[in-house]
Simulated scan of single mutants.
Amino acid sequence: MKTSFQLVRFAFIGALNTLIHYLIFILLFRALGFAMITASVIGYFSGMINSFILNRRWTFQLSGPGFGSEFIKFAAVNIVSLGINILFLQMLVSFFDILPEISQVMAIIVALSVNFSGNKYWTFQHKSPRRGDL
């Protein structure tokens, strides 16, 4: 599948996961009084589980063996993305005095490019068969 189609699917799933992340963040941070970073981490991992399942099956169209190793790679990419998200969230709130709700949206946007690239080129990398293998 062409990268442009994968990117559209990834973005659609990403929007859904971002909504999951953000709604859980708001619920935990504002309604339940969780610490900002804790609320963000819990929200992020909730979206991450959904993201793995949908991206594996729909975006990168994989099934069968490799689930465990793919999930480990996926988790690693997402931990890096989460680190970038938290770094930007904290920086925007602490240094620029931007509201956490707005900072979270900005941090999500920054982490998205790292997440797509890591998953496309490492986690869900297709091994194309050679001509003689078809």
Score class of each variant (00 low, 15 high):
residue 46 S to R: 10
residue 15 A to R: 05
residue 5 F to T: 15
residue 102 I to A: 15
residue 77 V to C: 02
residue 63 S to M: 14
residue 60 F to Q: 05
residue 13 I to W: 14
residue 82 L to T: 07
residue 51 S to M: 03
residue 130 R to A: 15
residue 41 V to F: 05
residue 39 A to D: 13
residue 105 V to E: 04
residue 123 T to Y: 00
residue 78 N to S: 10
residue 42 I to M: 14
residue 54 L to P: 14
residue 16 L to K: 12
residue 80 V to R: 08
residue 41 V to S: 12
residue 95 F to M: 04
residue 17 N to Q: 10
residue 66 G to D: 05
residue 62 L to G: 07
residue 93 V to R: 01
residue 123 T to W: 01
residue 14 G to W: 07
residue 72 I to F: 03
residue 36 M to E: 13
residue 10 F to A: 10
residue 115 N to F: 13
residue 126 H to R: 13
residue 6 Q to M: 09
residue 97 D to R: 00
residue 71 F to H: 07
residue 2 K to F: 03
residue 71 F to I: 08
residue 121 Y to R: 15
residue 85 N to I: 12
residue 4 S to R: 04
residue 58 W to H: 08
residue 56 R to W: 01
residue 84 I to P: 02
residue 115 N to V: 15
residue 4 S to V: 13
residue 52 F to P: 01
residue 2 K to I: 01
residue 96 F to A: 09
residue 29 F to S: 06
residue 65 P to E: 11
residue 42 I to A: 06
residue 3 T to N: 07
residue 34 F to T: 13
residue 84 I to Q: 02
residue 94 S to F: 08
residue 87 L to G: 07
residue 114 V to F: 10
residue 88 F to H: 10
residue 90 Q to D: 15
residue 21 H to W: 06
residue 62 L to R: 15
residue 126 H to I: 07
residue 73 K to P: 06
residue 19 L to T: 05
residue 48 M to E: 09
residue 35 A to P: 01
residue 6 Q to G: 13
residue 87 L to S: 14
residue 74 F to P: 05
residue 29 F to N: 03
residue 91 M to H: 13
residue 106 M to G: 12
residue 28 L to H: 04
residue 20 I to K: 12
residue 25 F to G: 11
residue 93 V to M: 01
residue 126 H to Q: 06
residue 95 F to H: 09
residue 98 I to P: 00
residue 56 R to Y: 09
residue 111 A to H: 11
residue 125 Q to L: 11
residue 98 I to D: 02
residue 26 I to S: 05
residue 45 F to W: 12
residue 15 A to W: 07
residue 45 F to M: 06
residue 29 F to R: 01
residue 19 L to M: 12
residue 77 V to P: 07
residue 131 R to D: 10
residue 34 F to M: 06
residue 78 N to E: 10
residue 80 V to A: 08
residue 70 E to M: 04
residue 50 N to M: 12
residue 76 A to N: 00
residue 26 I to C: 06
residue 49 I to A: 14
residue 80 V to C: 07
residue 54 L to R: 12
residue 61 Q to H: 11
residue 88 F to C: 02
residue 107 A to D: 15
residue 7 L to P: 11
residue 80 V to G: 03
residue 40 S to G: 01
residue 86 I to H: 14
residue 24 I to Y: 13
residue 89 L to H: 07
residue 64 G to T: 03
residue 76 A to I: 04
residue 95 F to A: 11
residue 6 Q to E: 14
residue 122 W to A: 01
residue 134 L to D: 08
residue 101 E to Y: 03
residue 103 S to V: 01
residue 72 I to D: 00
residue 129 P to F: 03
residue 118 G to I: 01
residue 49 I to M: 08
residue 94 S to A: 11
residue 87 L to W: 13
residue 90 Q to F: 00
residue 49 I to S: 14
residue 114 V to P: 02
residue 121 Y to A: 10
residue 43 G to D: 13
residue 111 A to M: 12
residue 6 Q to D: 04
residue 53 I to L: 01
residue 24 I to L: 05
residue 95 F to V: 10
residue 31 A to Y: 03
residue 130 R to M: 10
